[in-house]
């Protein structure tokens, strides 16, 4: 079965088992390895991508269901020179450790700030429920996110 997807604004064609999870299509077929397959059960959030604008766990999405969909991955949210606001806050606050969860964190949190420009700490934590980080203990990540909230509020 042939499936056509738009990945990061570029049309891509996949031929193979349509039940293949999107994360494997991205990583193994398109060799876009920024999206991580960690738990494969929708609990860790490391494989989060945007499908038609909404953050989704790509480990649970059979690619055949996505024919014609627009997918944005971590490789498509910013350029090397210009990080998006969430990425920039994470870099500025030096919160990254092993880094495996961060692609998913960036995808989830970038969307949160598109829908709510000034979430409070509890709202950020609630939105982070499906993104697990084993290294950092979260709070410094949240401190970083709170800083972009404040910046937006004051500007």
């Amino acid at each position: 079965m042939t499936i056509t997807l738009t990945v990061n604004r570029e049309e891509r064609i996949f031929s193979g088992d349509p039940r293949t999870p999107l994360v494997d299509v991205l990583r193994d077929h398109l060799r876009m390895t920024g999206t991580k397959a960690v738990c494969r059960e929708g609990f860790c959030g490391a494989c989060m991508v945007h499908v038609d604008g909404a953050p989704m766990a790509s480990c649970l999405l059979p690619v055949g269901s996505l024919d014609g969909a627009a997918v944005t991955t971590i490789e498509g949210v910013a350029t090397m020179e210009h990080l998006n606001a969430v990425q920039q806050a994470f870099e500025d606050h030096d919160v990254v450790q092993c880094g495996m969860c961060f692609p998913g964190m960036v995808m989830t949190m970038s969307r949160l700030f598109q829908t709510n420009t000034s979430p409070d700490r509890d709202e950020i934590k609630a939105a982070m429920t499906g993104n697990i980080c084993r290294c950092t203990g979260y709070e410094r990540i949240i401190d970083a996110l709170m800083s972009i909230r404040t910046n937006e509020v004051t500007s």
């Binding site: 989704m56 766990a57 649970l60 429920t129």
Partner: peptide
């Protein structure tokens, strides 16, 4: 239920 991403799907 579950978490936000699962609720979306």
């Amino acid at each position: 239920s579950a978490n936000p991403a699962i609720r979306r799907m």
